[in-house]
Design a protein around this nucleic acid. Sequence first.
RNA 1: CGGGGAGUAGUUCAGUUGGCUAGAACGCUGCGUUUGGGACGCAGAGGCCGCAGGUUCAAGUCCUGUCUCCCCGACCA
Length: 491
Amino acid sequence: MSNKGITPREEDYSQWYFDILERAELAENSSVRGCMVIKPYGYAIWENIQKNLDKMIKDAGVKNAYFPLFIPKSFFSKEASHVKGFAKECAIVTHYRLKENEAGDGVEVDENSKLEEELVVRPTSETIMYDTFSRWVSSWRDLPLKINQWANIVRWERRTRPFLRTTEFLWQEGHTVHSTHEESVQEVMDRLEMYVQFARDFLAMETYHGRKSESEKFAGAVNTYGVEAMMQDGKALQFGTSHDLGQNFAKAFGIQFTDTDGETKLPWQTSWGVSTRMMGALIMTHSDDNGLVLPPNIAPIKVVVVPIFNNENKEKVLSVASEIVKSLKKEVDAVELDERDFVSPGFKFNEWEKKGVPVRIEIGERDIESNNSVVVRRDTGEKESIGYEILASKVSDILSQIQENLLSKSKDNLVSKTHRVADFEEMKSVLKGDGGFVLTGWCGSEDCENSIKYYTKATTMCLIKDGEGKKGRCVYCGKESNDEWLFAKAY
RNA sequence: CGGGGAGUAGUUCAGUUGGCUAGAACGCUGCGUUUGGGACGCAGAGGCCGCAGGUUCAAGUCCUGUCUCCCCGACCA
């Protein structure tokens, strides 16, 4: 797996994700698969994502709220294509009570507690939120309505993958209601751009974004837009979506408003979200054979100070080290001192590298004598001796450099793995080789899309801005095409 | 749901044509020596060999059934 970074295979995450997640051990005979425990270090990354993204969401005038986990089954019958998209992956609550079994050694479902209407564990919250919105919206003065929720959701997928497709996952889902289509489309694009910006600034990830094809769009949407990242192994990963819902749901859930002209109208809606899948993208984008590599702007621990001592000089070294930590904390947050005396320094170096801490500072007797400390970068492995007086500001600079370097590496990876191809043969050979994105003409027909998928395993990712209106020929059927689309094998 | 593979210690796995008290490495516990790139020595704890049935003097090993997990597909964020 060298040079491909971390992939979501069991053998990889058991080795590298040791601090991030582990498979949940559920009931012996349970058919629950793909439920993961997010461990404290992994959850700290998620909290950093939450904190920073939540600020951007609020800056966009969106307010947080929380809606029920359980959705009456009947809500799902209201929007035809929505139910069709989710019906096959819903967990359903049918009873609300257990009783002791006859043998007296366990419990069983109490048949007397059957629910009159079954409840669906939310696979997404459009239905329950929009039912509520229908009571919140009655006038143009109530619009735009912009609501976001941070929640867990359940999708009973046939096949799961750690982080990328788990049965239960955490996400953020934003839902807005507007009086005009122009305004709702603007919201869709703004939130899409927000995700792109977030990925760039915090996750140090360069991505493509654009409209999804008809077959790839969200169940119930008029249009879906996605953010696509390129992993080190040549597979694409979609980690954010933004949907133009048109008036489909407004119609289905009876959301109406009286406009300034006195007319009763249907509003226009959007929804958009990113999930813990984003952490998978983050990990797979930057990490190497030595473990995680985390961008400083999202790392739970940005700097770790490893004192190197023996029984004789322990006290002295530790006191200098904690002085240094104190001065570092004035300029850098998330600094940690590793005082453990039961593992060797070499063990610590390795462990913090696996955890992806961006900067490690080593302080031992040698350094104290020369008023220096050894500063090591996780991204390049470079070591540098830096004096105490300038340490804090230097480290702060190095953290910015690491953030920049990771972004530029991600950009290089994206560019170098994007191939513009002339014909289908070339497309096949590119995808059979190192993979990556293929940029090529596509006539827009679902038949061609399916054939391309059949022969190459690649699907349409999205229509990026550069590709819009770029006339050419469809890579498969050879007919005239209006746009150049992005294809890739994807997770 | 189709194709392939695997279930033995906390983890990763050995375990021969059925044969004695089921093993290793790592991890864990204790003591000592160590500590600038995953330390070492000694002592120890830890097992319903996935589950149920069968064949046999004897089953981790053979047979039948069953459950679960992993990989590759189909489906999807």
